[in-house]
Design a protein around this nucleic acid. Structure first.
Length: 568
RNA sequence: GCGCCCGUAGCUCAGUUGGAUAGAGCAGCGGACUUCUAAUCCGCAGGUCGCGCGUUCGAAUCGCGCCGGGCGUACCA
């Protein structure tokens, strides 16, 4: 099959939508975008549109009459659109059934190119950046960071697969009060070792055991350090160690960042420029940034429909969190990205809204609304023995990312489980369940399907059974309901991935995989692949279906970066 | 108090942006291995979609008001 034919095949669904849009414009003179989705029940058809219901009010016509007209018009074109059947259902759905030829050809295409080779090029080489984790280097990453790490990484992966050029970026604080507190905590542990404990532990210091271990390493050095004279040394040593620890944990999840952006890169030029710009923005209540009598600088967020004005530079000249973050977002916009994704925990929601409001005002609402998208995820509640595990970084009562991976059995299980829920849904992570490593775990279900497929392919090679020799030679051989269901589902995959990327919703991938695995296991139990009673042509056709399913699963598992095992 | 998120089967969650008879996985019950992998499959059971008004041809989905949980409400990040 030629490349042009392949592209025509991939574009079939959008040609159907376009044809429907065209006939609505011709017949009724209105513009309507037609979305195709799976119908409630497979018996209605392969895809369905509710367009007649949506435009009925506008046209003042009964939806069924509209649907009837559209079906009549569609029937004339159906062969060229890969459709075997067009009908009206329920209150006015337009139900479509693909021709067997279309599904068979699509199957061949998926097997030849893999799912990745069939994905639309939405990004067209444009640049996107996903900022995530961005946890301050004051301790190890914990369970909540783990969810965010997996989310952000998979969003980046999704975008890359649909044609974006993606950078992953981690933004962190390398100065300020938290870092000072960290340095002070380290200095105290250090003084316990090298001297007489002359530096008392700060009241709200970080109590994690990792700091004692750093202190031990520092004590091995020939030079002797003193607090507060060597505060800078303590801070840089702690920062270096903390970031190394964080990178090591991320590495266990297989996550690499393209850039670690330090807050001090913005200070003072970019932060001061941001303040200066805000001073020049006039609002009905006065300039967007203003000073008070105590020498503090405020942002007039109330003029941007935000609940409260906020201090962004204190009297001692230090910035509070929001200002560097505003400067950072301006910087990201100026770096020429076409899409910026922020992944934050729900605790950052309020601040994020403030930052976005300011950035919109400074860079222009159109530009920001077009480019910036914020994904907010809810917290993870860790459950153990049927009870919640309380977590706090400062008090050192937490389960680290590394421990979580150990408890869950593997990075793969951890990644997969975090992707089985929508970002904005609260999530219970049951440690006891994770520890079991049993078949209650959904990742095994999908992996088992892949391993089973690999086994069949191995046996086929041994028995000398090959794939169909010519693309057309599976015609009419895959007519079992289970076969057809699997083909229909596979055909949908490129569009589901595209939708998941557009919505920045990686959990759709795990849902899709579970569906495919289920359809495959059902198929496997309904018919014999290699010893097909119907003959060797059928065996080859089923082998093609098996092989294509394997490639789709392999590529989907690849997108969430979970191993696709050959054996289990 | 105020703002945002969430509330769907015993448990954990989907639900294609307002559409057809509300779905899946676990857990429960009953079946299927001399067969390409039983980490699988098939069947049964399980629901006032937190509650109440409203919007309209039509609501789990949108609006308002309650109830419950989470996160914010810092001159921490």
């Amino acid at each position: 099959m030629s490349l042009a034919d392949d592209d025509r095949l991939i574009g079939t669904r959008s040609r159907i939508s376009a044809a429907m849009t065209g006939m609505i414009r011709e017949r009724w003179g209105i513009a309507a975008e037609v979305d195709l989705g799976p119908p409630r029940d497979a018996s209605f058809g392969d895809v369905s549109s509710q367009i007649a219901l949506s435009i009925a009010g506008q046209l003042g016509l009964p939806p069924r009459d509209i649907a009837d007209d559209m079906v009549a018009a569609l029937r004339e074109q159906s062969p060229s659109l890969g459709l075997a059947e067009v009908s009206v259902g329920g209150p006015g759905f337009v139900n479509l059934r693909f021709s067997d030829e279309y599904l068979e050809d699509f199957l061949g295409l998926l097997d030849a190119r893999g799912l990745c080779g069939c994905l639309p090029d939405v990004g067209r080489g444009r640049r996107a950046m996903v900022e995530f984790v961005s946890s301050n280097p004051t301790g190890p990453l914990t369970v909540g960071h783990c969810r965010q790490a997996v989310l952000g990484d998979t969003i980046a992966s999704l975008l890359r697969h649909v044609g974006w050029k993606v950078d992953r970026e981690y933004y962190y604080n390398d100065s300020g009060r938290q870092i000072e507190r960290l340095a002070h905590s380290l200095a105290s542990r250090y003084s316990d070792i090298v001297s007489d404990g002359s530096t008392p532990f700060p009241e709200d210091g970080y109590q994690g055991g990792y700091i004692e271990s750093w202190a031990g390493d520092l004590a091995c050095r020939t030079r002797c350090f003193r607090w507060p004279d060597d505060a800078a040394e303590f801070a840089s040593f702690a920062l270096e160690r903390a970031m190394a620890m964080i990178e090591q944990d991320l590495d266990r999840l297989g996550i690499r960042f393209d850039r670690f952006f330090r807050e001090t890169e913005l200070i003072p030029e970019k932060t001061e420029r941001a303040i200066a710009s805000m001073r020049e923005v006039a609002t009905p209540d006065g300039p967007l940034a203003y000073d008070d009598s105590e020498g503090k600088t405020w942002i007039r967020l109330t003029a941007l429909d935000r609940p409260e004005d906020r201090v962004v530079r204190r009297a001692d000249g230090r910035y509070t969190y929001r200002l560097p973050d505003i400067a950072y977002h301006l910087d990201k916009l100026q770096r020429g990205y076409d899409l910026l994704v922020d992944v934050f925990g729900s605790d950052h929601l309020d601040t994020s809204r403030d930052v976005v409001a300011c950035v919109r005002r400074l860079a222009g609402p159109g530009e920001v609304d077009r480019k910036l998208r914020v994904v907010i995820h809810q917290f993870v509640t860790l459950m153990e023995g049927g009870r919640k595990v309380r977590m706090s970084t400062r008090a050192a009562s937490y389960v680290t990312l590394g421990e979580l991976i150990d408890l869950a059995g593997s990075a793969d299980v951890t990644r997969y489980l975090f992707l089985t829920r929508r970002a904005e849904a609260h999530m219970d992570f049951d440690l006891d369940l994770a520890r079991k490593q049993s078949d209650e775990n959904p990742v095994y279900y999908v992996q088992y399907a892949h391993a089973r497929i690999s086994g069949i392919l191995r046996n086929a090679r041994e028995e000398g059974i090959g794939l169909p020799s010519a693309p057309g030679s599976v015609r009419g051989l895959l007519r079992h309901p289970r076969e057809r269901e699997l083909m229909r589902l596979l055909q949908e995959c490129p569009f589901q991935v595209e939708a998941a990327a557009a919505a920045l919703e990686p959990h759709r991938l795990t849902e899709l995989m579970a569906e495919i695995a289920s359809a495959f296991h059902g198929f496997y139990h309904s018919v014999r692949v290699l010893q097909a009673e119907e003959g060797s042509d059928t065996a080859s056709a089923r082998l093609l279906l098996t092989s294509a399913t394997g490639k789709v699963l392999r590529d989907l598992l690849g997108m969430v970066r979970v191993e696709a095992p050959e054996r289990m």
